[in-house]
Amino acid sequence: MLELRLVQGSLLKKVLESIKELVNDANFDCSSTGFSLQAMDSSHVALVALLLRSEGFEHYRCDRNLSMGMNLNNMAKMLKCAGNDDIITIKADDGSDTVTFMFESPTQDKISDFEMKLMDIDSEHLGIPEAEYDAIVRMPSAEFARICKDLSSIGDTVVISVTKEGVKFSTKGDIGAANIVCRQNTTVDKPDDATVIEMKEPVSLQFALRYTNFFTKATPLSSTVTISLSNELPVVVEYKIAEMGYVRFYLAPKIEE
């Protein structure tokens, strides 16, 4: 038996909107730690890791570890039917081939339940080691989204370089080239507007903008984004989910031949 009650249901709606275009089907894993997911995109270039910790739910009952295969597009369709202020409860019985999403309006005058069919998904689970990164950039998530969008109108790939001077996003295409440099800036009114760069080693890595643009669908989840880079390793683009956990996107770099 599984019953997870999330008062801020809009968080789950935003989570689905942030990953449904990157990943088609995925197993949601439920354990005493929380509600989590790990999935690769269909071309196996990017990986999404989601964690919603059990403490973030108002009620969290998970009698035994459970893995539920869901089509994310269908799940997003159902969650779209929940109001932004609704409380969402996820329910499943042991051995059932369905999951139920219950939506309660804040005033309790409208209660809906949507039952979705589960599916068997044979997915690889990858072990992601805790790593020390050469450079970590924290910046406003809207700024990162803007940069990825702007650069993708010029080129297909972005080179992200971190030096003492700041973080540089560069692209080249048929019509020309573009460079955007963001300097460390901590003298802002609101801490979330700051750009903070922690650098151990200079880093320069190239990525497909097609994927970074998918990642920025998570912008509504958090006002800041953290980009962790090490030479020749996948980048981690992390959006924290208020008090509850995170959505992390991992993307393999493009290597010059």
Binding site: M40, H44, V45, L126, G127, Y250, A252, K254, E256
Partner: peptide, 14 residues
């Protein structure tokens, strides 16, 4: 020319 490798090249299957 740059080449895109899969993410599974970097992380082992558990």
């Amino acid at each position: 020319c740059s080449r895109q490798f899969p993410i599974s090249l970097y992380f082992a299957t558990t």
